[in-house]
Design a protein around this nucleic acid. Structure first.
Length: 110
DNA sequence: CCCGTGACTTCCG
DNA sequence: ACGGAAGCCACGG
C-alpha cells in the first residue's frame, strides 16, 4: 500500500463516518489510528475540509479533553452541542460529560 | 521555495 | 495545579 497524503484526508473522513452514534473521539485518537500520532492538527485540518461534507459527523470529534474545540467552525455555536445531546451525549460548558465513557477509540474498537 | 495559519498535543517553568 | 511555549504536519498564497 502506498497511501498518498490525499488519502489521509479521505481516511479521516472515513473514520469520522464510522464513529458510532452517541460516541465521540479525539483528533489524536484518529491521528494515532492512521499512524500519524504526531499530526493531530492535520486531522483537524482534514475535518475542516470535511466541513463541506454533511455526511461527516464532525460534531463527534473533539479534542482529547472532550471539549468542543471545533464548535466555532459550525454554523452556530450551539449546533455542535445540540447534535451531540440529541445523540445521547451530555454536554456541559462546552465539555463532554463522562467523556471516557462515550469515548470511541478506533484503534481498539474499529 | 518560504511564510503563515490551524477544529491539537505535550513539555517546561 | 496552572499558564505559556514549542512541536508537529499539511495546505494556501
Amino acid at each position: 500500500m502506498k497511501p498518498d497524503k490525499q488519502d489521509f484526508f479521505k481516511q479521516v473522513h472515513q473514520v469520522a463516518k464510522l464513529i458510532p452514534k452517541g460516541r465521540v473521539t479525539s483528533y489524536g485518537a484518529i491521528a494515532n489510528y492512521l499512524g500519524a500520532k504526531s499530526s493531530a492538527r492535520v486531522v483537524g485540518w482534514a475535518m475542516n475540509a470535511a466541513h463541506g461534507d454533511l455526511s461527516i459527523p464532525a460534531h463527534r470529534v473533539v479534542n482529547r479533553l472532550g471539549m468542543l474545540s471545533g464548535k466555532h467552525h459550525f454554523e452556530g455555536i450551539n449546533l455542535m452541542q445540540q447534535l451531540l445531546e440529541s445523540e445521547g451525549v451530555a454536554i456541559k460548558d462546552n465539555q463532554v460529560q463522562d467523556f471516557k465513557a462515550v469515548f470511541w477509540n478506533p484503534s481498539e474498537e474499529l
